[in-house]
Nucleic acid binder design. Sequence first.
RNA 1: GGGGAUAUGGCGGAAUUGGUAGACGCGCCAGACUCAAAAUCUGGUGCCUUCGGGCGUUCCGGUUCGACUCCGGAUAUCCCUACCA
Length: 858
Amino acid sequence: MSEKYNPRVIESKWQSFWRDNNTFKSEMKTEKEKYYILEMFPYPSGKIHMGHVRNYTLGDVIARYKRAKGFNVMHPMGWDAFGLPAENAAIENNISPGKWTYENIDTMRSQLQSMGLSIDWDREVATCDREYYHQQQKLFLKFYKEDLIYKKESLVNWDPVENTVLANEQVIDGKGWRSGADVEQKKLSQWFFKITSHANSLLESLENMPGWPEKVKTMQKNWIGRSVGCEIHFEIESGYKEYKPEMLEIFTTRPDTIFGATFIAISPFHPIVDDILENDPDIVEEIIGLRSQKLNEETISKNEKIGISTALKIKHPFIDGKKLPLFIANFILMDYGTGAIYGCPAHDQRDFDFAKKYDLEIIEVIKPDDTSATIDNGAYTGEGSLINSSFLNGLKISEAKKKIISELEKIKIGKKTINYRLRDWGISRQRYWGCPIPILYREDGKIIPVPEKHLPIELPTEVDLSQSGNPLENHPYWKYTTCPHTGMKAIRETDTLDTFVDSAWYFLRFCSPKNNNPFDENEINYWMPVDQYVGGIEHAILHLLYSRFFTKALKIKKIDEPFESLFTQGMVCHATYKNKDNAWVFPNDVEEKGGKFYQTSNGLEVTMGAIESMSKSKKNVIDPEEIIKSYGSDSARWFMLSDSPPDRDINWSDSGIQGSWRFCQKIWSTITSNLSILSDENITIYNQNTSKNAVMLLQSTHQSLDAVTKSIENFQMNVGVAKIYELINHISKFRVFVENDKSALKASLRILIRIIEPMVPHLAEECWSLCGNSKSLSSEPWPDVDEKYLVRETVKIVIQVNGKRRAEVEIKVEASEEEVMKEVESIKSVNEQIQDSVIVKKIFVPNKILNIVISKNE
RNA sequence: GGGGAUAUGGCGGAAUUGGUAGACGCGCCAGACUCAAAAUCUGGUGCCUUCGGGCGUUCCGGUUCGACUCCGGAUAUCCCUACCA
C-alpha cells in the first residue's frame, strides 16, 4: 500500500512546481482565444480571511477549467493598497504606511500562494507602487485635458477638535470617532470627475449586459436615477425693501400638478438664501441650524420637516393674482435638480406633511381613478384625471404633462429636462496614503496641471501623521515648488485621490502591467473586456460604476464596457458565541458537550447566537491559515465549493471541513489502491469489448462528466461537487470481474482526476503524476463527453393514475403508448385502481410518464 | 417610505425549467473491524400508518391530466436604498 494522503507535502510540492515552470504565465497569443478571469483585488489589511478564500477559489475553478477547455487564460492578482487603515496603523504602531502595507502584501501573497491559485504573479501590481500611481497621474491629466475633471465647493465631514476631515466611516452617530466631537459640515474646494456626463450611457448600456445579475443592474439603474421632468421659471415678488430678485428656477417631474401648487421651497444652501439672510437678520440663526444639520438617518427617520418662511412671494404663472409663499426647507437638496421645488400637497406626501405642519392650502387637482381614494390621510399619487386645472381639466396625467410642458415652452418660462440622481464623483481626499493629484497652484492664482514629463509626483516618505489636519499640507517642504513653465512660486495640491480611482482601471493595467504608459492598446484590445469578474455584492454600485465610467471615458477602440460577465458571491458566515458577560468568544475556544457550549479556556458556559457573516468585531472568524495548516488548501477549497450555491451565503462548520477532508482522503485511497491499473501501459482506455458492468460505469462516468462541465459553466459549483461525489461512489463500488473491466475503470479514474483539478488542484496533480504521467495535469485538456454513453437503452416510465404516481415500468427507449400500456396491464396495483372505472383519457409523454385519467363508475 | 430577493427533511441544499420531490453532503441510527476508542467500511434515514396506504416543497386560492416550478393573494426572513421633487 502507498503512503498516506499528506496535503502538506504534496501541496508545497506542486506550488513549487507551478512556480518553477511558470505554469500560469499568460501572454498575448492572437491565434488563440483569450479568457480574462478576474476576482476583485484585495485590500492588504494584514491576513487573508475566509471571504478571500471563497472569492479566489471560485475564480480559480473558472481559470483552471477554461485553461483545460483550450483558452488562453489570464488570471492576475494585485493589491488595492492605498487607504485609511494604513494611516491608522501608522499612528497606532508607529510604522510607516508604506512599510505596513508592503509587509501585509508579502504576508497575504504567500497566503494566497498557499491556496494553490493559478495566478500569473508576473502581472502583480499594487496601487501604492510608484509606477502604478505614476500612470494614474497621467490618466488624471488626460481627463483634465478632456474637461472631465473640475473643481467646486463641496461639503465634508469636519471634526472641529482634531481639525480634520473625516471619512463617512469615521463618523459615528454624528460624532468624530476619536474626539467624540459633533461633526460639522464644512465647505471645501474639491476635485470632481464629471461622471454625470456619461450618466445616460452608463444607464443605457445596462440594457445590453446579459452577463450581469439583474439585481446589480437594478441597483445601478436606481442609483443613476434618471427622471424626466421640466424646469419652470417663476417670477419672484419680494417683500424686502432692499432685495429684489426676479426669477427662481424649480425642477419637477409632476408639472401636471402646477394648479395644485400652494408653496415654494428651496434648499438652505440655495444661492438666494445668502441674499435673504442679508435682508432678514431674524432668521439667520434658524438657517445656520438647518445648514449644519446633516441630512442623516436620524433626521430622515424622524421625518421632521422644517421650513422657515420668508418675505418672498412667487407669482403663479397660470393663476392671475395668486401668490405662493417661499420657504427655506430642510428636505430640499441643493444638488438635485435646481435646489428648489413647488409644493403640491394634495399629490405629494412630503409636501402634504409640510402643508399640514405649516397649515398651508391643499388643492386637489387629480381626480383619482380609484373612486374610493381620498386625501384625508395623505397625498394621492396614483393615476387619475385633472380637475381644478383650467386648460388641463379632463386630461390624464401623462397627457397633462405633455400639454403643460409644451405650454411652458411656448410662453418661454420652462422646458423639458432630464435629471439624474447620480452626482459627480468627488475624488479629493485630505489624506496622505493615496495617489497625489498632479496639480499646482501658482502664486498668481492660476491652476497648473503638472506636465507629464515631471511625473510622478511622489509621496514623501517622511510624514507626521499624528498631527491633526491634512498630512501633506502639514509637511514642512513637500508642497513648495515652482511652476515648470514660468518658474514662479507654486504650491502643490495636497489632497490625494479617492482610492476608488485606483480600482477603477486596475483591470486595464493588468493587461500590460509594466508598460511605460497606463496601458498598451494592443494588449487591451486582445485581453479586454474581462470575461468573468467575481466579487462581493458590496461593490455593486460604486466600484463597478466608476470602473464602467473610466472604461467609457478612456474611449479605447473596441472597449465600451469593462466586464462581460459579473458574478457576485455570497459571504462566509459562522455561528456567534457570547459568554455570561455578554462578550464575544472565538469559535475555536468553544466546545460542545451535550447540546451546550463551553469555553475551552475556562470551562464556562457560553450561548450560541445567530449565524452571521464572519467579522472581527463579533469574533466569529476562522483563520484560513490554520485551516490550511491542519487540513490542507484542497480541503479548504473543496469546502468553499460544496453545499451552498456560490451566490448565497455559506456557513462555516467543523463537520463541513471534516467532510471535505474525508473526500480528499477518499480520492487519494481510491487512486492509490488502483495504481497498478492506472500505471499499467498495457491497459488501454479504448477497449471495445466491454462487459455490461463496465458499460454502466462508463455511462455514469460520462453522465457525471457532462453534469460537472455544465455546472461549472453555470456557476453551480455545489452541484458539480455533488456529481463528483456520485462518480466516486460509483467507482468505489465497481468491481473488476473480467480483464476488460480494467480498461473501463482506468478511463473512469482518469476522467475523475481531470475533473477534480479545478477544485482540488494539488491532489489532482499528485494523483495524475502517480499514474505515471510526466506532464503536468494543468496542460491536459478537459475530457470530451462521449455521447454514446449518455444514450440509454431502456428507460423508467412513471405510471400515474389521476396524476398520482402508482408504479413505474422499465421499457426500451422510445416505446409507444401501446407498448407501455401493455406492460401496465400486468401491474396488479394499477389494475386495482382502474377496475370499476372508465378511462377518460391517457396522457403519454414518451420516455417520461403515462397518466391514466379515470372516473369512478359506480 | 421606495426597490429587490428568498421560503423544500434535523441542517446545507438538488430537481433535465410543467412530468418519479428530497440527488449529493452533514447529522443521526444500526451493523462490521477493534480488548476499547478513533479512523474506515456496509446498510438505513421526509412525516404519519391499523403496513392497505395516507400526508408532504411557508400559508390560502386558481390554471392543468399533472404544480417546488405558472397566476392571484397572505405571512415570514433577508438585502439594498433613503426626503431625488
